[in-house]
Simulated assay, not measured.
Amino acid sequence: METVKSLNKWANAHTSYPLDVLRIIVGVFLFWKGVSFMTNTEYYNQLVEPIKDLGGGMLIVHYVMAAHMVGGVMIVFGLLTRWSIMAQLPILLGAFLVNFIGEMHVGNLILSFLLLCVCVFFLFFGSGKHSADYYFKMES
């Protein structure tokens, strides 16, 4: 717990608008991907083709869509950002690794790697000073 407090203090002292804009862009992108997967199921089924034989395939499909949509909105507002990012990390790691299991898509590989790196950064950095987390913390 002390580590999280020290990370929050450091993040709040070093926060800036470009980092908040980056957090919002990541959240909007994740929400958009969740909606995209929901509306374009044929594309999504093609993406999960290499792992469809694993147990719980339908659970994975629903988890990815829900986590992207709900987590994306929470990241945009900076509400429980670290928890939302932790829900995204297995998905992003899977998106990165699925390129090595099935057919390699360089664009998807680069995009998933960059998004994974940004999410790991925000996992440690937090939501920053311009967020719902900071607002609610200051209210109490």
Rank of each mutant, 00 (worst) to 15 (best):
I75N: 01
H130V: 13
A132G: 06
D20N: 15
E49T: 08
N45C: 03
M69D: 11
A95R: 01
A67I: 12
P90K: 05
T81F: 04
K33A: 14
M58L: 07
C119L: 08
F122V: 07
A13Q: 15
T81Y: 01
G94K: 02
S127Q: 06
Y135E: 05
A67E: 01
V4K: 02
Y17I: 15
N45Q: 12
L22Y: 07
A11Y: 02
T39V: 13
G34N: 03
N12I: 10
S16E: 10
N40L: 08
K33L: 14
A13I: 06
V48R: 02
Y63R: 01
D20H: 08
L80D: 00
K9F: 10
E139F: 10
M1F: 11
D20R: 03
K33T: 13
E103H: 07
G56W: 04
V21Q: 07
K137I: 05
L115H: 00
M74Q: 14
V21E: 03
I60E: 03
A132W: 01
S127L: 05
A87I: 08
P90W: 06
T3L: 15
V28P: 01
L59C: 00
K33G: 02
A11W: 04
A87M: 10
G56I: 06
G78L: 10
L109N: 00
F136H: 07
F31V: 04
L123Y: 10
G57V: 07
I51P: 01
N45H: 09
N99M: 12
L7A: 15
L114R: 00
K129P: 02
L79A: 14
F124C: 09
S131C: 11
T39A: 09
N108M: 09
M1P: 13
L80M: 14
L92Y: 06
L109M: 13
H14K: 14
H62Q: 12
I24T: 11
G78A: 11
N12G: 11
F113C: 06
L116E: 06
D53E: 10
I51V: 15
T39F: 11
I110K: 00
V48K: 02
V118T: 09
L93K: 00
Q46V: 05
M1R: 03
Y63A: 13
L92F: 06
M38D: 02
H62M: 11
S84P: 11
N40R: 09
S127T: 07
M138N: 11
Y63N: 10
A11M: 09
K5A: 14
L22G: 10
F77G: 04
I51G: 02
S6Y: 08
K5N: 14
M69I: 15
A87W: 05
E2F: 12
E42V: 12
H130F: 15
Y17Q: 12
T81D: 10
A132T: 04
L80H: 12
G34Q: 04
L47I: 10
K129M: 08
V98Y: 00
H68K: 03
K33E: 14
I85Q: 00
E139R: 14
N99Q: 12
G34H: 04
A66W: 09
L123V: 08
E103W: 01
T3N: 09
S16R: 07
G57W: 04
P90M: 04
I91V: 15
V64A: 11
S140D: 13
L80E: 07
G72I: 03
I91Q: 08
N12Q: 14
V118G: 04
